[in-house]
């Protein structure tokens, strides 16, 4: 490299578009996850195991399982998302890629949204896909299973989005995992109530359109607000490190 042949360095004005940067963040997270596939299976195994505990611990009777099944599946899915949240930012925090993410010349909340979307595709979506099998095992009828999957499909992204705030707030703290659960579970309650309530209504044969629409509203609210809070929390946690 020769100093004379290169032009003088000037401030740059154009950066890569935000959408392209979001896509890059998303695909990098996917790539990293698929190089460590076992980590992808863990939340799913956990989900199945928690569901198994209920027939063993409470009662294998068809009537009980049919009544409680949707609730069991929802609680298990919620716990399994909660368990996976600790990883959302921690590895990036440890190896320094999080610092570089915060320093990218794009709005941070959109990059956080891309990361959260990747988290959902890697944990929430597989849970939704696995739910029908477990639904059959707890003797839910076909219609209830369909509604259950729909509520999980709308609800699990909300869990990831709210969870991202907690994961960002507890980044770098000792016993972050337990603390994360303490902060996030109360905020998960509305999603849980409407998720299970919608299935209960469907089982009784009531129309569920209004409830599903309301869950959709939760999702819209979470998409618009949670990334801001998570981005702010990330900056605070990095300031502190």
């Amino acid at each position: 490299m020769n100093a004379e042949t290169r032009p003088l360095i000037k401030p740059q004005e154009s950066a890569v578009s935000t959408v392209a940067a979001m896509r890059a963040v998303f695909s990098r997270d996917m790539k990293v996850a698929f190089r460590q596939r076992q980590d992808l299976l863990n939340p799913l195994l956990f989900f199945v195991m928690v569901v198994t505990l209920f027939p063993l611990g409470v009662s294998p009777e068809v009537s009980f399982l049919r009544e409680a099944g949707a609730g069991i599946l929802w609680v298990a899915a919620l716990l399994s998302v909660l368990l996976s949240l600790d990883h959302l930012f921690r590895h990036d925090f440890d190896d320094g890629t999080l610092e570089q993410l915060v320093l990218q010349p794009q709005p941070l909340f959109l990059l956080v949204l891309a990361k959260t979307l990747a988290h959902w595709v890697l944990t929430g979506l597989p849970l939704v896909l696995l739910a029908p099998v477990l639904g059959v095992m707890v003797h839910l009828d076909g219609n209830s299973i369909a509604v259950l999957c729909l509520t999980l499909l709308i609800g699990t992204p909300v869990l990831s989005l709210i969870g991202a705030i907690g994961a960002a707030l507890t980044l770098g703290l000792r016993s972050a995992g337990v603390l994360l659960s303490l902060l996030i579970i109360p905020l998960y309650i509305p999603v849980l109530i409407f998720g299970t309530g919608t299935v209960a209504a469907a089982t009784e044969g009531a129309p569920v359109g209004a409830y599903v629409a309301l869950m959709g509203a939760f999702l819209v609210l979470a998409i618009t607000l949670a990334p801001f809070a998570a981005a702010a929390a990330l900056k605070i946690s990095l300031s502190n490190s």
Partner: peptide, 10 residues
Amino acid sequence: RAVAVLVLVG
């Protein structure tokens, strides 16, 4: 500041 974010979300 972290608590402020959490309380606002709450």
